[in-house]
């Protein structure tokens, strides 16, 4: 008897800002759509624990996609992408997500992302509050400078290992070795895009003067950050949440910047609380 997972994968072709993408996504569950964005330079296997969580997938249709150029989602198929430097912008990132949600005909989904996925969750809440039931920005902040570094794809080093080991201590020492090394393994696979992703994360994403444009009473915003995150430490996330009308902050103890991937059993405790809050506020 084959030991199949209930998780299945599909491709969908979308056009975003004139670029044609064949997007790969994993999904499992039924009910409220819960759209999940991986971290920069990574792919959707970071959500492997959530995708197979029997309790959550009973009520939520979990969809974890690979952003274009990551995992099994190729770079754009209709342009010579290798002739220009990849730098992800907030505009394109937001357009990608809304176009993908439209293509999948998702009804009022919850959007959750970690790190640069968390930062774009804030962008979505600001720009498209009526298209999302709620957002869960994980390890996010209004501004996260300092990680747009040349080392991530420097030709004199093993960029795969620099990306993987350079993000190693974003994880908590308490997280299990197997999960930390799996996350390390994923990070060896995205070194060509990591720096370009971080252009969005550390440069183009800057909401320091725009947080008053987010109204969490229209689109609930539940922010969660781990105590071992040195890029967006808890106080930075908390300050961001405080400046959002109706923003909620949950601190996650003894976990780091990749919580869903480095220690899912701990992360799910906090995620269930976030989902409970969203149900309370939205009725779904």
């Amino acid at each position: 008897m084959a030991r199949h997972s209930p998780v299945t994968g599909r491709y969908v072709t979308i056009e975003v800002d004139g670029l044609e993408y064949k997007v790969f996504y994993l999904h499992n569950g039924k009910g409220t759509p819960l759209v999940c964005q991986h971290t920069a330079g990574c792919h959707n296997h970071q959500w492997r624990g959530l995708l197979e969580d029997e309790e959550i997938t009973r009520d939520y249709n979990v969809i974890a996609y690979d952003l274009a150029r990551h995992g099994k989602s190729d770079p754009p198929l209709n342009v010579e992408w290798w002739k220009s430097e990849y730098k992800l912008t907030a505009d394109h990132y937001v357009n990608f997500i809304t176009t993908l949600c439209d293509a999948l005909e998702l009804d009022n989904p919850i959007f959750m992302g970690s790190s640069f996925g968390g930062n774009v969750a804030l962008q979505l809440a600001m720009r498209h509050p009526d298209r999302f039931r709620a957002v869960i920005p994980v390890e996010a902040a209004d501004y996260a400078p300092g990680f747009f570094l040349d080392w991530w794809r420097h030709p004199h080093v093993n960029a795969a290992q620099v990306c993987a080991s350079g993000t190693w201590d974003l994880m908590a020492p308490q997280s299990p070795d197997m999960d930390r090394w799996l996350t390390w393994h994923y990070y060896t696979q995205g070194s060509e895009v990591f720096k370009g992703d971080l252009y969005f994360y550390s440069v183009d994403h800057d909401l320091r003067r725009d947080l008053d444009r987010i109204d969490a009473r229209r689109c609930p915003v539940v922010m969660m950050t781990g105590t071992y995150d040195f890029l967006t430490p808890p106080e930075v996330t908390e300050n961001t949440a405080r400046r959002i009308k109706g923003g909620i902050y949950i601190e996650m103890t003894d976990i780091g910047h990749f919580p869903m991937s480095e220690n899912y059993p701990v992360f799910r405790v906090y995620l269930k609380e976030a989902l409970r809050i969203i149900r309370e506020k939205t009725g779904g």
Partner: peptide
Amino acid sequence: PHFHGIWAASFREDLKIEGNIT
């Protein structure tokens, strides 16, 4: 937290990394 690696400590604490970083 912030003492759990050289990146964390150089971003948030007093660790300095000097010399040939390559």
